[in-house]
Design a protein around this nucleic acid. Structure first.
Lengths: 255, 255
DNA sequence: GCGTTGATGTTAAAATTATAACATTTAGTG
DNA sequence: CACTAAATGTTATAATTTTAACATCAACGC
């Protein structure tokens, strides 16, 4: 690594930080070196900047190349997430006020919301808010507070009260672990309060989880399985697993 | 416009909505048409998708091509904004708790904050939050509420109370109009409450505006010029203009 | 000073992407 | 069914981007 090289990268990073893209040509001129040098800077040092068809873009920015392209295997993995959200979508109705939980599970659902005439989305997650902000037909209510990077979400001491003040129709909740006996859990403790508040106040509670979460327990417990009205999942074998070896559990419908 | 064309675009948009990029090749395969057709779809219909070096990306996503590239004139226009923010930066100190206003003016400032060891940023704007969220050294407090797309910001009836509860050190306020007699104004009325609350509670109030805003009045008045301790601007002639033809106005320092 | 090393510049070739022109298919109409 | 027009596919060509190879230059130690 080179001092000057790092300096150039820093300069470019600053230029790109406010958004937009920078052509390799302009980047070279801006740094007063050749395009080749910029290319080499980029390949030598790894950095937050990535080169896309002759243009520099911030790689860690929400929308751009989170290091993955939607190709082959990943496309099929995307398909799985997509199908799960398709099932969840079936429960959404025109005019609903939805609580959308944090995490990546529900993100593919959000673009589908453009097909409705009018909806309201309540969330405490930045990535959810970004996906909803571009939809003109969806009113967005973001519950703010202190930002937690790990879950891309916000927390505050009165978030539960804020949620309970809203008329939430349906709560779409995600989880990192679902176990028959130990209940439903997630990674981060600051997610517990908003999840519980949404479950408490919503008219219908939907747990949206892919089957890989079954039998898993994570540090932060937030609900029992029968606190939910519906469990939306992606595997056919799931019903037995969840309702307990064929015993009747009328509180939970598995979709 | 064609029904199938629109359908393809919608499909691709959904695929891209959760982030990432999609190679033209894969997009064509996904839609079961030739690459040329995808290209034509993109050029015929305007859409949120843009093609960057053979890859499809969401154009309206925060980080990517907000329709502008940083080239030539625009690079110099960026330089102006950048210099303005450099001046504003001089007022920021290690450990500060900053209120950052909405709009695009202060965005270039945010990436510079990475040079500090520790800061806290309070904002009610989504674009500001996105820029700050990637900085590991800056604590982010986002004041939530109902989202207003026009200003990419949030509003709620208790936003003023939330701001006043925080220990804000310095308020960096932007404006769309600054006039000696008619005061400082912006476009949107929902911005008034948070701006005024920040001005009321902050220890130091800085107005950051480029000179093009001088002599302009916008619909929503929110402060008098001497409510600010410092006016940060980019033109040398500004002092006279603002302090009133050379008369003394000790309340306002122009940087 | 000389030679070495690392950084950078220059150039040519390869690969990829963009554009245009023309061929083919498809859907709709009388 | 034939005709038309729009949509799509195919191909060739142009433009651009990527890669590799080699040339230059400056800094540094001996």
């Amino acid at each position: 690594m080179n001092g000057r090289s790092a300096l150039r990268l820093a300069k470019l990073q600053e230029a790109l930080a406010s958004g937009g893209t920078l052509h390799l040509r302009d980047a070279a001129e801006m740094c007063d070196v050749s395009e080749m040098t910029i290319r080499r800077d980029l390949t030598t040092h790894p950095s937050a900047i990535s080169l896309l068809g002759g243009r520099l873009v911030m790689a860690n920015y929400p929308g751009v190349t989170p290091i993955y392209d939607l190709t082959e295997q990943q496309a099929s993995h995307y398909q799985a997430k997509y199908r799960l959200c398709q099932r969840a979508l079936a429960f959404i109705e025109e005019g609903d006020t939805l609580f959308i939980d944090c995490g990546s599970t529900l993100i593919p659902l959000l673009s589908q919301l453009s097909h409705f005439r009018e909806l309201t989305v309540v969330t405490y997650a930045l990535n959810v808010a970004n996906a909803v902000a571009v939809l003109p037909n969806v009113r967005l209510v973001l519950l703010g507070g202190l930002f937690y990077a790990a879950s891309q979400s916000f927390g505050s001491d009165n978030i539960a009260a804020s949620i309970e003040r809203l008329g939430i129709n349906k709560a779409m909740i995600s989880a990192a672990g679902v176990d028959l006996e130990r209940g439903v859990s997630c990674f981060h403790f600051h997610e517990v309060a908003p999840k519980q508040a949404a479950i408490a106040t919503a008219m219908q509670r939907l747990l949206v989880v892919d089957a890989s979460k079954f039998g898993v327990v994570r540090p932060a417990y937030f609900a029992a399985l029968d606190d939910f009205d519906v469990v939306v999942t992606d595997e056919e074998g799931a019903p037995q697993l969840l309702t307990g070896q064929g015993s009747e559990s009328p509180a939970v419908t598995v979709a």
